[in-house]
């Protein structure tokens, strides 16, 4: 099939529609507004619904309602908007409602700015709202992945009855690259737990209330079991030049693109370095990291935040090797050259 030059944000809209999603509820925010604009244009065309909600809070609760109705629904926002949605995401996780939430991260804290940052790692990967829950997080690094991982996100959401995040940054959203589109999904199966407003589903209940502590503990155990299952089945990562690597750089999103070029250039200089890019941030590629750690690879994590993913890497290597952080904040994207310089200085290579 033909390729299309398209922005990542536009590829998300197409991917969602090709995945059979027909309901979009959102609130405008830079740098994610293009997703809402694209959704407003394309969702109604194929018989779907686009609704600009009165708030981020309302938007995620509309998704909650629609998802309870057994259909594929989504919302998209950027960091401050995600903070507002956390209540609804906790409810969706508790009521086990599948949906897709896109976060095109921007600079924070507070109003911060609209430049790309990765400072939402903690609020997205660690659950973010109240209660014992986690949300699968897919981190695309190209326009193609903005489409294909959005489609994948809907499948994971339905498979595990869980909200799923697409976590990207302004660069991946704004960048145009060629995208190939798969065939659209048209016949989605009926969900036996959902309320379809018909006789067959009328005894179904969508709820996150378990008043009895033992019942709530049981529910939480069930959720944890589900997350363990997700950790077993759904890990995705990209390995680049890791076979003989002595040094491993890690990063996701736009950072991983910078790191790939840095690795290519350092390899030209005979430095044995490779890239490990988590595509899923939860589940986290712990085994892949640990295997490299016990081979005594030295790690450098590059993040556009105060160092959030690096904590997970350190936890994973269990002191078997060193894990350094190189970070930029405020919307500054590290250049290939500054990363190379840092690596050369730090590791004397």
């Amino acid at each position: 099939m033909a390729k299309y030059l398209m922005k990542g944000n536009d590829a998300i809209v197409r991917g969602a529609l090709l995945a059979g999603c027909r309901f979009y509820f959102g609130y405008p925010i830079t740098p994610a507004s293009e997703i809402a604009e694209g959704a407003a244009r394309y969702f109604p065309k194929v018989g779907g619904t686009f609704l600009q909600a009165e708030s981020e809070v309302a938007a995620i609760n509309m998704v909650y309602g629609a998802s309870g109705g057994g259909i594929r629904a989504m919302t998209a926002s950027s960091s401050p908007g995600i903070s507002l949605k956390q209540e609804g995401i906790s409810y969706a996780a508790g009521a086990e409602l599948p949906c897709v939430i896109v976060n095109i991260m921007r600079g924070g804290p507070g109003l911060g700015n609209i430049a790309p940052e990765q400072s939402d790692y903690n609020q997205v990967v660690k659950g973010g709202g109240h209660g014992n829950y986690k949300v699968p997080v897919l981190a695309p690094n190209s326009a193609q992945e903005m489409c294909s991982l959005t489609m994948k996100a809907f499948d994971i959401a339905d498979k595990y009855r869980a909200p799923v995040y697409i976590l990207a940054d302004g660069y991946i959203g704004q960048m145009m690259e060629p995208v190939e589109f798969p065939e659209p999904v048209t016949d989605l199966p009926r969900k036996d737990w959902a309320v379809y407003a018909d006789k067959e589903s009328k005894d179904n209940l969508i709820s996150s209330i378990y008043l009895d502590p033992y019942e709530l503990e049981k529910h939480n155990r069930k959720l944890q079991k589900k997350y363990a299952e997700i950790e077993k089945n759904e890990i995705m990562c990209e390995k680049f030049m890791l076979e003989d690597a002595e040094y491993v750089v890690m990063g996701y999103g736009i950072v991983s693109r910078v790191l790939k070029t840095a690795v290519e250039k350092l390899r030209d200089k005979k430095v044995k370095i490779g890239l490990l890019r988590p595509i899923t941030l939860f589940p986290f590629p712990k085994k892949e990291i640990y295997d490299l750690a016990v081979k005594n690879c030295k790690f450098l994590v590059v993040e556009m935040s105060n160092g959030q993913m690096v904590e997970d890497v350190r936890l994973t290597v269990q002191g078997k090797t060193t894990v350094d952080l190189y970070n930029r904040m405020g919307g500054v994207v590290p250049t290939t050259d500054e990363v190379i310089e840092h690596i050369q200085n730090r590791f004397s290579v």
Binding site: F23, F25, T49, L51, A53, V57, A58, A59, N61, M62, V63, Y64, G65, A66, S67, G68, G69, G70, I71, A73, E87, G88, Y91, A95, V195, Y196, A197, S201, K202, D203, N204, L205, I206, S207, S208, I209
Partner: peptide
């Protein structure tokens, strides 16, 4: 004895909007 959805505090009209749009009948 109907389909039931429990909503977060204050959000019932938003949840209603979502489900009504999904199932207009």
């Amino acid at each position: 004895a109907t389909g039931n959805i429990q909503a977060a505090h204050g959000r019932a009209p938003a949840v209603s909007t979502g489900i009504k749009r999904a199932h207009p009948d």
